[in-house]
């Protein structure tokens, strides 16, 4: 059993938050609020060795002592990381990425899945697959 110490929300709660949003501003307000839920990462996380390749903003990932930690210097990405962690918490790793993509589409945030943004989200999944090496339970609570 491993822990996702930063996560404070489940998928239903996330969907609930977005369900009343009409304008894009409201969706991004919610996303920025979610970002605060990511909580403070271990200060040693933000170092070169933990950096995921991404063009526009930095994303750091570590998996030590069975603890997955994620962080970014961009707030919107931090909000998306909360959603990613929630997906990881509810689904086996092999399904989590497609569930994450489906969630973003449902919530009107599909533009963040575009390859042209090269925002490191794809890189995070690749890094997690590399760590898990096929073990579906690696990142489960």
């Amino acid at each position: 059993m491993t822990k996702l110490p930063q996560l404070q929300l489940d998928l239903d709660a996330i969907e609930q938050r977005f369900s009343d949003c009409r304008a894009w501003e409201e969706r991004y307000r919610q996303l920025l609020l979610l970002a605060k839920g990511l909580g403070k990462a271990d200060p040693t996380l933000r170092q070169e060795a933990h950096l995921i390749d991404g063009c526009e903003s930095d994303v750091w990932l570590s998996f030590e002592q069975q603890q997955l930690q994620l962080d970014s210097n961009a707030k919107i990405i931090r909000g998306l990381l909360v959603m990613l962690l929630a997906c990881l918490d509810s689904y086996p790793l092999s399904q989590a990425q497609s569930e994450f993509a489906a969630l973003l589409k449902r919530l009107g945030l599909a533009q963040h899945l575009s390859e042209s943004r090269n925002n490191g989200l794809q890189g995070i999944w690749q890094a997690m697959y590399a760590i898990a090496q096929g073990d579906e339970q690696t990142f489960c609570r």
Binding site: E56, S57, K75, I76, I77
Partner: peptide, 10 residues
């Protein structure tokens, strides 16, 4: 962060 700004400007 410029990426946050660019997202909301987009």
């Amino acid at each position: 962060h410029p990426q946050d700004a660019a997202t909301l400007l987009d």
